[in-house]
Design a protein around this nucleic acid. Structure first.
Lengths: 336, 336
DNA sequence: TTGTATGCGTTATCAA
DNA sequence: TTGATAACGCATACAA
């Protein structure tokens, strides 16, 4: 016996106010012509009936839902939790609502895509740390504006916003060299994270420019535990690294704890450690982690800018790749 | 020149497939009667046209949107980020979509409520750490099923799911007493956080049962920095606490850092410290924080259960208050 | 099993 | 300024 309560409609309000349904509609439309008298009667009736105009029929008529799908995965990473917060706040300010799509496997978005399209979202944001090229293609096929956050670019419908992963990682290499390191290690994120790839590339290339060739490499999953295990693996060697750069802060903190707690090494005396993101915990005294500040606020603003432009003109430029500067912040973990 | 691309409709598909529009509709409806032949023609045409059935008209007809609004605030707290992830995953599994509503001031939900109702959400989850009674009333007025997460109960439309905040805090008091503490401090969350109130009440009452009367009290904002500052304030006293219980882990970790880094005290030798939530960082060796495990997974399941029941029968029981057991986990921060 | 017709709650167009 | 009226894209009762 599912007794369904109905929201009251503009017709109900019109009846009670003694005006036409169109009058009610106009009362809620910006800059429509309604007399003060009519507006008053309508609002009064609306209050009495608890009336709220519905977006649903409007979506049918205007073909705009003001819904933006935000696809997320790794909220365990405070950086992404923060990014989601900022996205939500900014999109709401701009008059959009966020349809949150959670997925733990960025590889295939198969389950996600039908949902997205059935709600007729106006645009899609992917704030996924890892996403396969195939998944990006699937999104592109919807012919809806898509922005990828810290991920590689696919095509005309898909733009992307990234930190300057390459540049910041080059700077990190220089920083560690300058601090006297000679044997370098890198802990990467998952293989299909383009951010991780870029961070590795920048780091490796800058080292190579200084004649540093071999470089200890391990791959993990962007999580604390993964970084900790990877560090243990890297430091079994007879001549382990004296500087360790990790593709994100969480792994760097795991690595620091592996070095200090599990291996009895000192940071920075025995090993320099650095991360990427600048999550709040990186600045806590227990870690004092040297890292790269990603300007989440600016990245989000850029992303929304791209979306809005493309939503306004579907034939406008697409496939734009925006790179936002990132800043190295040196802390105790790489102090001499 | 906003050239709007339109999704193709069931009518387009019907035309191409040479069948009626209802045939298309039936092809996508469970257990409708369509011949294999028709279904094949429809699906073929649908693929050609990239057709995806729209939820929007269906919402109008059925008065169900399969949209659940999730109101969040403090995603900086990993516990809540995790809760949001679990909610999203579970709701999606159950066939619902999440409309994410962000607010940084749980006090008034004024901006949120019109949006919620204009999208005709079927239910609302508030995963806000702090929310005023007035805000809860506002939600109740919508006559939609509402579940409050770790917050106080309002009325017939509003149910709540909480950890056993009182019980776990009593246990924490007992634990600290047993560890030999004699002077106790408490760092609370914001005044209108009912979880914080309950945690304080349980702690204070259990101490009182042991004859402990005065108790150093400070209020902060649930954040790391707030906890750190509050701890500094509490420890200016000539006879400062030798045990400190904080209303959440983030503040406890801030407090630990204040004690160790700013004041040169040792944890646990000089001061025992405990928190609440069991966020991942609490288990990291740098903190080893004694805390209370909130069973987020079970809490979310309970919440969804309540929502679904109320969505199915709007005249069913409402205003249900569910308490989920919470477990104390002792770590180094309160070891003798 | 299939097609026709109707309605859901708005916005937009047009005439009054 | 106001009120009829026609869409929008789907689900459903009904007739065939």
């Amino acid at each position: 016996m599912t007794s369904r309560k109905r929201y009251s409609s503009s017709i109900d309000v019109a009846r009670l106010a003694g005006v036409s349904q169109s009058a009610v509609s106009r009362t809620y439309r910006e800059g429509a012509s309604v007399s003060e008298e009519t507006r008053r009667k309508v609002l009064e009736a609306a209050t009495a009936l608890d009336y709220r105009p519905s977006m649903i029929p409007r979506i049918m008529l205007t073909h705009r839902s003001y819904l933006v799908a935000v696809v997320v995965g790794g909220l365990y990473n405070p950086f992404y939790a923060n990014v989601l917060e900022i996205f939500s706040a900014r999109l709401q300010e701009a008059g959009y609502q966020v349809l949150l799509m959670y997925t733990d496997s960025g590889h295939t978005l198969d389950g996600i895509i039908p949902r997205l399209s059935s709600y007729r979202v106006d645009a899609i944001v992917s704030a996924l740390a890892v996403m396969s090229g195939a998944a990006a293609q699937d999104l592109a096929r919807l012919k809806i504006p898509v922005v990828l956050f810290n991920a590689a670019l696919a095509n005309n419908w898909v733009s992307s916003v990234s930190s300057d992963n390459v540049g910041a990682s080059r700077a990190m290499a220089a920083h560690l060299i300058e601090r006297g390191a000679t044997r370098f290690g890198f802990i990467a994120g998952p293989a299909n994270s383009s951010a991780s790839k870029d961070r590795f590339a920048g780091f490796r290339d800058r080292l190579a420019e200084n004649g540093v060739q071999p470089l200890a490499f391990a791959e993990a999953d962007y999580r604390y535990e993964g970084g900790r295990a990877a560090a243990l693996a890297l430091f079994t060697d007879a001549r382990p690294p004296d500087a360790l750069f990790c593709a994100n802060d969480l792994m760097a903190m795991g690595a620091m704890d592996a070095l200090r707690t599990d291996l009895g090494l000192r940071v920075p005396e025995d090993v320099l450690v650095a991360g990427f993101d600048d999550i709040p915990a990186a600045a806590w005294p227990s870690y004092g982690l040297t890292t790269v500040i990603q300007d989440a606020s600016r990245m989000v603003d850029k992303a929304i800018e791209l979306l809005r432009a493309k939503m306004a003109h579907h034939d406008g430029p697409g496939g734009i790749r925006t790179i936002v500067p990132a800043t190295l912040v040196a802390r105790a973990s790489t102090a001499r």
